[in-house]
Amino acid sequence: MRLQFLLGEIGNGLRRNLSMALSVVIVTMISMYLLGLGLMGQRQVDTMKDYWYDRVQVTVLLCAEKTRYTNCAGEPTTDAQRTAIRAELDALKPTVAEVFYESRDEAFDRFKQTYQNSPLARAGESYFADSYRVNLNDASKFDVVASSIKGMPGAADVQDQKKLLEKFFTFMNTISWAAIALSSLMVLAAVMLISTTIRQTAFSRRRETGIMRLVGASNFTIRFPFVMETVIASVLGASLAMGMLWATVRYGVVGFLSETLTDTAFIGVADVVYVAPFIIGGVVVLASATSWVTLRRYLRV
Protein backbone atom coordinates (compact mmCIF):
# COMPACT_ATOMS: atom_id res chain seq x y z
CA MET A 1 0.00 0.00 0.00
CA ARG A 2 2.67 2.42 1.01
CA LEU A 3 4.73 1.50 -2.06
CA GLN A 4 1.74 2.17 -4.29
CA PHE A 5 1.17 5.50 -2.54
CA LEU A 6 4.83 6.47 -2.95
CA LEU A 7 4.81 5.49 -6.63
CA GLY A 8 1.69 7.61 -7.11
CA GLU A 9 3.40 10.56 -5.44
CA ILE A 10 6.43 10.13 -7.69
CA GLY A 11 4.24 9.99 -10.80
CA ASN A 12 2.30 13.08 -9.75
CA GLY A 13 5.50 14.94 -8.97
CA LEU A 14 7.04 14.17 -12.35
CA ARG A 15 3.86 15.12 -14.17
CA ARG A 16 3.46 18.39 -12.34
CA ASN A 17 7.08 19.36 -12.74
CA LEU A 18 7.60 18.07 -16.25
CA SER A 19 9.74 20.94 -17.51
CA MET A 20 12.05 20.73 -14.51
CA ALA A 21 12.33 16.96 -14.91
CA LEU A 22 13.09 17.44 -18.61
CA SER A 23 15.85 19.93 -17.86
CA VAL A 24 17.44 17.42 -15.50
CA VAL A 25 17.15 14.75 -18.20
CA ILE A 26 18.83 16.96 -20.81
CA VAL A 27 21.64 18.21 -18.61
CA THR A 28 22.51 14.72 -17.39
CA MET A 29 22.27 13.42 -20.94
CA ILE A 30 24.75 15.94 -22.32
CA SER A 31 27.17 15.71 -19.40
CA MET A 32 27.18 11.92 -19.45
CA TYR A 33 27.55 11.85 -23.25
CA LEU A 34 30.60 14.10 -22.99
CA LEU A 35 32.00 12.00 -20.17
CA GLY A 36 31.36 8.88 -22.25
CA LEU A 37 33.11 10.38 -25.26
CA GLY A 38 36.11 11.24 -23.09
CA LEU A 39 36.26 7.73 -21.68
CA MET A 40 35.89 6.27 -25.17
CA GLY A 41 38.78 8.47 -26.34
CA GLN A 42 40.96 7.11 -23.54
CA ARG A 43 40.02 3.55 -24.38
CA GLN A 44 40.76 4.26 -28.04
CA VAL A 45 44.24 5.44 -27.11
CA ASP A 46 44.77 2.32 -25.01
CA THR A 47 43.53 0.09 -27.81
CA MET A 48 45.80 1.75 -30.34
CA LYS A 49 48.77 1.59 -27.99
CA ASP A 50 48.24 -2.12 -27.52
CA TYR A 51 47.92 -2.56 -31.26
CA TRP A 52 50.82 -0.40 -32.32
CA TYR A 53 53.34 -1.11 -29.62
CA ASP A 54 53.27 -4.74 -30.76
CA ARG A 55 54.04 -3.62 -34.27
CA VAL A 56 56.36 -0.68 -33.89
CA GLN A 57 59.71 -1.17 -35.39
CA VAL A 58 63.02 0.46 -35.17
CA THR A 59 64.23 1.33 -38.61
CA VAL A 60 67.96 1.32 -39.36
CA LEU A 61 68.24 3.37 -42.52
CA LEU A 62 71.22 2.56 -44.68
CA CYS A 63 73.03 5.02 -46.88
CA ALA A 64 72.08 5.59 -50.46
CA GLU A 65 73.87 7.76 -52.99
CA LYS A 66 73.91 11.45 -52.22
CA THR A 67 71.87 11.20 -48.99
CA ARG A 68 72.00 14.14 -46.65
CA TYR A 69 72.93 12.03 -43.59
CA THR A 70 76.39 13.12 -42.46
CA ASN A 71 77.36 9.63 -41.37
CA CYS A 72 77.17 8.47 -44.98
CA ALA A 73 79.44 11.08 -46.52
CA GLY A 74 77.42 10.72 -49.75
CA GLU A 75 78.49 7.12 -50.29
CA PRO A 76 76.08 4.16 -50.40
CA THR A 77 76.53 1.43 -47.82
CA THR A 78 78.92 -1.30 -48.86
CA ASP A 79 78.12 -4.98 -48.52
CA ALA A 80 80.72 -5.32 -45.77
CA GLN A 81 79.11 -2.54 -43.74
CA ARG A 82 75.71 -4.13 -44.30
CA THR A 83 76.94 -7.42 -42.90
CA ALA A 84 78.53 -5.66 -39.93
CA ILE A 85 75.30 -3.90 -39.06
CA ARG A 86 73.32 -7.08 -39.45
CA ALA A 87 75.76 -8.92 -37.18
CA GLU A 88 75.54 -6.15 -34.58
CA LEU A 89 71.71 -6.33 -34.62
CA ASP A 90 71.80 -10.10 -34.27
CA ALA A 91 74.18 -9.71 -31.36
CA LEU A 92 71.59 -7.56 -29.57
CA LYS A 93 69.15 -10.47 -29.15
CA PRO A 94 67.10 -10.96 -27.02
CA THR A 95 66.42 -7.20 -26.92
CA VAL A 96 65.95 -7.49 -30.64
CA ALA A 97 63.30 -9.99 -31.61
CA GLU A 98 63.54 -10.06 -35.37
CA VAL A 99 65.40 -8.30 -38.13
CA PHE A 100 64.07 -7.92 -41.66
CA TYR A 101 65.89 -6.46 -44.56
CA GLU A 102 63.86 -4.18 -46.80
CA SER A 103 65.41 -3.03 -50.01
CA ARG A 104 64.80 0.37 -51.50
CA ASP A 105 62.50 -1.08 -54.17
CA GLU A 106 60.42 -2.97 -51.64
CA ALA A 107 60.12 0.15 -49.49
CA PHE A 108 59.01 2.16 -52.49
CA ASP A 109 56.44 -0.47 -53.52
CA ARG A 110 55.03 -0.64 -50.00
CA PHE A 111 54.77 3.12 -49.84
CA LYS A 112 52.98 3.31 -53.19
CA GLN A 113 50.55 0.65 -52.02
CA THR A 114 49.79 2.36 -48.73
CA TYR A 115 49.27 5.78 -50.19
CA GLN A 116 47.88 4.82 -53.57
CA ASN A 117 45.05 7.36 -53.36
CA SER A 118 47.15 10.11 -51.95
CA PRO A 119 49.12 12.84 -53.69
CA LEU A 120 52.11 11.60 -51.70
CA ALA A 121 52.30 8.64 -54.07
CA ARG A 122 54.07 10.85 -56.58
CA ALA A 123 57.17 10.86 -54.40
CA GLY A 124 60.06 9.49 -56.35
CA GLU A 125 62.09 6.40 -55.61
CA SER A 126 65.05 8.56 -54.57
CA TYR A 127 63.35 9.35 -51.27
CA PHE A 128 63.80 5.78 -50.16
CA ALA A 129 66.73 3.72 -49.03
CA ASP A 130 67.58 0.19 -48.05
CA SER A 131 66.86 -0.46 -44.41
CA TYR A 132 66.77 -3.00 -41.64
CA ARG A 133 63.41 -3.21 -39.90
CA VAL A 134 63.96 -4.32 -36.35
CA ASN A 135 61.23 -5.67 -34.06
CA LEU A 136 62.03 -5.25 -30.41
CA ASN A 137 60.86 -7.52 -27.64
CA ASP A 138 60.37 -4.48 -25.48
CA ALA A 139 59.44 -1.30 -27.32
CA SER A 140 61.02 0.86 -24.63
CA LYS A 141 64.51 -0.52 -25.30
CA PHE A 142 65.02 1.66 -28.35
CA ASP A 143 67.99 3.44 -26.82
CA VAL A 144 69.95 0.19 -26.53
CA VAL A 145 69.65 -0.40 -30.25
CA ALA A 146 70.21 3.22 -31.16
CA SER A 147 73.39 3.58 -29.13
CA SER A 148 75.05 0.51 -30.65
CA ILE A 149 74.07 1.09 -34.25
CA LYS A 150 74.21 4.87 -34.57
CA GLY A 151 77.56 5.97 -35.90
CA MET A 152 78.42 2.62 -37.43
CA PRO A 153 79.77 3.12 -40.91
CA GLY A 154 76.99 2.74 -43.46
CA ALA A 155 74.17 3.35 -41.00
CA ALA A 156 72.45 6.59 -41.99
CA ASP A 157 70.03 6.86 -39.10
CA VAL A 158 68.14 4.88 -36.50
CA GLN A 159 64.48 5.83 -36.28
CA ASP A 160 61.97 4.93 -33.59
CA GLN A 161 58.36 4.73 -34.81
CA LYS A 162 57.20 4.79 -31.22
CA LYS A 163 58.23 8.42 -30.91
CA LEU A 164 56.01 9.38 -33.82
CA LEU A 165 53.10 7.41 -32.37
CA GLU A 166 53.53 8.94 -28.95
CA LYS A 167 53.00 12.42 -30.31
CA PHE A 168 49.76 11.21 -31.80
CA PHE A 169 48.70 9.45 -28.62
CA THR A 170 49.43 12.54 -26.54
CA PHE A 171 47.26 14.52 -28.89
CA MET A 172 44.38 12.07 -28.58
CA ASN A 173 44.81 11.89 -24.84
CA THR A 174 44.63 15.65 -24.54
CA ILE A 175 41.40 15.74 -26.53
CA SER A 176 39.80 13.05 -24.43
CA TRP A 177 40.87 14.74 -21.20
CA ALA A 178 39.39 17.98 -22.51
CA ALA A 179 36.10 16.15 -23.07
CA ILE A 180 36.26 14.76 -19.54
CA ALA A 181 37.01 18.19 -18.10
CA LEU A 182 34.07 19.69 -20.02
CA SER A 183 31.85 16.91 -18.81
CA SER A 184 32.85 17.54 -15.21
CA LEU A 185 31.72 21.14 -15.63
CA MET A 186 28.44 19.82 -16.99
CA VAL A 187 28.19 17.41 -14.07
CA LEU A 188 28.61 20.38 -11.73
CA ALA A 189 25.81 22.15 -13.61
CA ALA A 190 23.69 19.01 -13.30
CA VAL A 191 24.27 18.84 -9.55
CA MET A 192 23.29 22.47 -9.10
CA LEU A 193 20.27 22.04 -11.34
CA ILE A 194 19.11 19.01 -9.37
CA SER A 195 19.55 20.95 -6.17
CA THR A 196 17.54 23.90 -7.53
CA THR A 197 14.86 21.60 -8.91
CA ILE A 198 14.46 19.90 -5.55
CA ARG A 199 14.20 23.22 -3.78
CA GLN A 200 11.58 24.34 -6.26
CA THR A 201 9.51 21.16 -5.97
CA ALA A 202 9.86 21.11 -2.20
CA PHE A 203 8.49 24.63 -2.17
CA SER A 204 5.66 23.89 -4.57
CA ARG A 205 4.64 20.91 -2.48
CA ARG A 206 5.05 22.49 0.94
CA ARG A 207 1.35 21.99 1.73
CA GLU A 208 1.63 18.25 1.22
CA THR A 209 4.93 17.89 3.01
CA GLY A 210 3.63 20.09 5.82
CA ILE A 211 0.69 17.75 6.34
CA MET A 212 2.93 14.71 6.09
CA ARG A 213 5.08 16.14 8.86
CA LEU A 214 2.05 16.98 10.97
CA VAL A 215 0.58 13.51 10.88
CA GLY A 216 3.97 12.02 11.64
CA ALA A 217 5.13 10.58 8.32
CA SER A 218 8.70 9.33 8.49
CA ASN A 219 11.51 11.27 6.86
CA PHE A 220 11.79 8.45 4.37
CA THR A 221 8.16 8.77 3.27
CA ILE A 222 8.48 12.52 2.89
CA ARG A 223 11.79 12.55 1.05
CA PHE A 224 11.69 9.36 -0.98
CA PRO A 225 9.39 10.72 -3.74
CA PHE A 226 11.64 13.76 -4.23
CA VAL A 227 14.77 11.67 -4.39
CA MET A 228 13.20 9.16 -6.75
CA GLU A 229 11.95 11.86 -9.09
CA THR A 230 15.45 13.22 -9.62
CA VAL A 231 16.97 9.74 -9.78
CA ILE A 232 14.45 8.69 -12.43
CA ALA A 233 15.02 11.86 -14.47
CA SER A 234 18.81 11.64 -14.31
CA VAL A 235 18.93 7.91 -15.01
CA LEU A 236 16.74 8.55 -18.03
CA GLY A 237 19.22 11.22 -19.12
CA ALA A 238 22.21 8.94 -18.56
CA SER A 239 20.54 6.10 -20.45
CA LEU A 240 19.83 8.38 -23.39
CA ALA A 241 23.48 9.49 -23.26
CA MET A 242 24.61 5.87 -23.35
CA GLY A 243 22.28 5.28 -26.30
CA MET A 244 23.85 8.23 -28.11
CA LEU A 245 27.33 6.97 -27.25
CA TRP A 246 26.43 3.52 -28.53
CA ALA A 247 25.17 5.03 -31.79
CA THR A 248 28.32 7.15 -32.10
CA VAL A 249 30.59 4.13 -31.67
CA ARG A 250 28.40 1.77 -33.69
CA TYR A 251 27.98 3.99 -36.72
CA GLY A 252 30.86 6.43 -36.38
CA VAL A 253 33.70 4.14 -35.30
CA VAL A 254 32.75 0.56 -36.09
CA GLY A 255 30.67 1.37 -39.16
CA PHE A 256 32.84 4.11 -40.62
CA LEU A 257 36.35 4.60 -39.21
CA SER A 258 37.18 0.90 -38.90
CA GLU A 259 36.15 0.27 -42.47
CA THR A 260 37.99 3.29 -43.84
CA LEU A 261 41.21 2.92 -41.87
CA THR A 262 41.68 -0.81 -41.87
CA ASP A 263 45.26 -0.91 -40.63
CA THR A 264 44.62 0.12 -37.06
CA ALA A 265 42.52 -1.09 -34.15
CA PHE A 266 39.40 0.71 -32.94
CA ILE A 267 37.14 0.47 -29.93
CA GLY A 268 33.87 -1.36 -30.41
CA VAL A 269 30.37 -1.27 -28.91
CA ALA A 270 31.63 -3.66 -26.23
CA ASP A 271 33.52 -0.70 -24.74
CA VAL A 272 30.28 1.28 -24.45
CA VAL A 273 28.57 -1.70 -22.84
CA TYR A 274 31.49 -1.89 -20.43
CA VAL A 275 31.36 1.75 -19.23
CA ALA A 276 27.55 2.20 -19.31
CA PRO A 277 26.79 0.45 -15.98
CA PHE A 278 29.44 2.52 -14.21
CA ILE A 279 28.14 5.80 -15.65
CA ILE A 280 24.49 4.99 -14.88
CA GLY A 281 25.41 3.74 -11.41
CA GLY A 282 27.44 6.89 -10.81
CA VAL A 283 24.49 9.03 -11.87
CA VAL A 284 22.19 7.19 -9.44
CA VAL A 285 24.64 7.82 -6.60
CA LEU A 286 25.17 11.45 -7.61
CA ALA A 287 21.46 12.24 -8.00
CA SER A 288 20.41 10.60 -4.75
CA ALA A 289 23.25 12.14 -2.77
CA THR A 290 22.56 15.62 -4.18
CA SER A 291 18.83 15.43 -3.53
CA TRP A 292 19.26 13.97 -0.06
CA VAL A 293 21.67 16.72 0.95
CA THR A 294 19.38 19.40 -0.51
CA LEU A 295 16.36 17.93 1.27
CA ARG A 296 18.18 17.90 4.57
CA ARG A 297 18.57 21.63 4.21
CA TYR A 298 15.19 22.56 2.78
CA LEU A 299 12.80 19.97 4.17
CA ARG A 300 13.36 20.19 7.87
CA VAL A 301 11.37 17.89 10.11
Binding site: R207, E208, G210, I211, R213, L214, V215, G216, A217, N219
Partner: peptide, 17 residues
Protein backbone atom coordinates in the same frame (compact mmCIF):
# COMPACT_ATOMS: atom_id res chain seq x y z
CA UNK B 1 7.55 11.48 13.54
CA UNK B 2 6.48 8.91 16.12
CA UNK B 3 5.70 11.74 18.58
CA UNK B 4 3.59 13.48 15.94
CA UNK B 5 1.62 10.30 15.36
CA UNK B 6 0.41 10.75 18.92
CA UNK B 7 -0.83 14.26 18.15
CA UNK B 8 -3.52 15.49 15.79
CA UNK B 9 -3.44 19.11 14.70
CA UNK B 10 -6.07 21.60 13.57
CA UNK B 11 -5.35 25.15 12.46
CA UNK B 12 -7.15 28.39 11.85
CA UNK B 13 -6.48 28.14 8.09
CA UNK B 14 -7.65 24.50 7.80
CA UNK B 15 -4.62 23.47 5.64
CA UNK B 16 -6.54 21.18 3.32
CA UNK B 17 -5.11 20.05 0.00
Amino acid sequence: PSLRRQIGCVFQDFRLL
